[in-house]
Design a protein around this nucleic acid. Structure first.
Ligand SMILES: [Mn+2]
Ligand SMILES: [Mn+2]
Ligand SMILES: [Zn+2]
Ligand SMILES: [Zn+2]
Lengths: 142, 142
DNA sequence: TTTTAAATGAAAATCATTTTCATTTATAAA
DNA sequence: TTTATAAATGAAAATGATTTTCATTTAAAA
């Protein structure tokens, strides 16, 4: 958790038990959740906690790279842990069965970029690669 | 429009003036819009038209491949024309300046797939590549 | 022309997300 | 350790996108 303490500090965010609890929950589960799901969990540990606090924190955590936001079922937005908090370029993959989320650093978009720019006549500023699949546990039927 | 007439028919959707007006609007503009924006336009041409009708049609059009849904500004969902209504694998690129949307068929994800599967231990089922950039017109300052 | 299911409008409901504002708390200065 | 300050928070209400309901209309097929 030292890493996260540092990250919060670096970004001018205060260190609070609630923030640590949220981060721990994501770290422990490696799954993506809705703000509401996080709130349900947090209410067990903190008798007083509002849903807006969850929304506010998840948004900030995404901004500083601790979490990533993915579009999951039912056009809802979910958040999942983003382990690559270093600034390295990377992408995410989710398991449609258990909602596990992982990240990986390999990317070959660079090889494609020029060609797409020629065909579309766009200057490409961002590329987002998003993968869906079945994770190892779900393959094994866990 | 014959192409779209056929597509609607093939998918068991009735041919209506409103549907054609929606499709024409997307074809004419090559930009992505919110359902509300489409509604504002449609109200000029049809004195009676409800927002739910727009939502319902946009959703159906996406399902049959006429439109694609993209996440644009402010965490809203937008729809844009999807020219590649043939079933060919393709991806989309949007202009963050004028909201133009285009599609292109080249893709090199196949070369990456095995490697990502090894690293992440996922079986990859879907990949989505989504690009943002500046279109030719906006580059020229139009 | 008749029949039938799909499409629609109007109104209300839903529900995720955000805002407001008074209170609490982490942090750093004194 | 106090004190000062801005950030964080909870409660409640507001917002706003999207969906549902249901009676009516309409396209398409018989
Ligand atoms: Mn990449
Ligand atoms: Mn591809
Ligand atoms: Zn899984
Ligand atoms: Zn543009």
């Amino acid at each position: 958790m030292e890493k996260y303490k540092k990250l919060l500090k670096e970004n001018g965010l205060k260190i609070t038990p609630k923030r640590f609890a949220i981060i721990s929950y994501f770290l422990k589960n490696n799954k993506y959740f809705t703000p509401y799901e996080i709130w349900k969990f947090m209410k067990k540990k903190f008798k007083k906690i509002g849903l807006p606090t969850i929304y506010r924190n998840l948004e900030q955590f995404e901004k500083i790279g601790i979490l990533t936001r993915v579009e999951g079922e039912e056009n809802r937005f979910y958040y999942g842990i983003c382990k690559k908090t270093n600034k390295k370029h990377h992408h995410h993959i989710i398991c449609t069965s258990c909602h596990k989320i992982s990240d990986f650093e390999i990317c070959n978009f660079g090889q494609l970029k020029k060609q797409v720019e020629e065909i579309t006549e766009f200057d490409i500023k961002e590329h987002h690669l998003f993968l869906k699949g079945i994770c190892q546990n779900c393959k094994k039927g866990v």
